[in-house]
């Protein structure tokens, strides 16, 4: 048989894709369940409108960090003493694929209201640069 090798490879590929599909469905369902429980907890301990111990002064602050291949600049918006939004102004030196991963940290930072989050595996340079930029912006926002 001339094409046996190809047929075997095709079958294995389909098997791998199939098991990945099954895995993905199960994992996604589980993640959804976890998110639902997490949301319930969040409602009960909602963030105070303006905490007395708010660390930051309201305003928009710019910060800079060095990523994979150049400067990363961000604007951090503080509202009611909390980290409200983080906008990336510049990231031209970053590889798209890697930067997209690093950007995932932004949600975590806004949610936890502090920049002490883990860098993203596989995107060390970009996420370190992004974190550096956010931290330098927050330094300017700290109440003195």
């Amino acid at each position: 048989m001339k094409n046996t090798g190809m047929v075997i490879k095709f079958i294995s590929l389909l098997l791998i894709l199939g098991s990945l599909g099954v895995y993905q469905t199960i994992a996604a369902a589980r993640a959804e369940q976890r998110a639902a429980t997490a949301a319930q907890i969040k409602v009960t301990e909602n963030r105070p409108e303006k905490p007395a111990d708010a660390k930051y002064l309201d305003g928009v602050y710019e910060g800079e960090g060095f990523g994979f291949g150049g400067d990363i600049r961000v604007n951090v918006t503080i509202k009611d003493g909390n980290i409200h939004a983080i906008d990336v102004l510049e990231h031209s030196g970053e590889d798209d694929e890697y930067f997209r991963l690093a950007v995932g940290m932004i949600d975590k930072i806004i949610e936890s209201n502090h920049p002490d989050v883990d860098t993203v595996t596989g995107s060390t340079f970009s996420s370190q640069g992004l974190l550096e930029a956010i931290r330098s912006a927050l330094e300017k926002a700290v109440k003195s």
Partner: peptide, 19 residues
């Protein structure tokens, strides 16, 4: 970049997260 995806896929599977 291509191989990064392979690594991320197995990192996700290792921690039982969706890919």
């Amino acid at each position: 970049s291509g191989f990064l995806a392979v690594k991320l896929m197995f990192t996700a599977i290792g921690s039982a997260e969706p890919i």
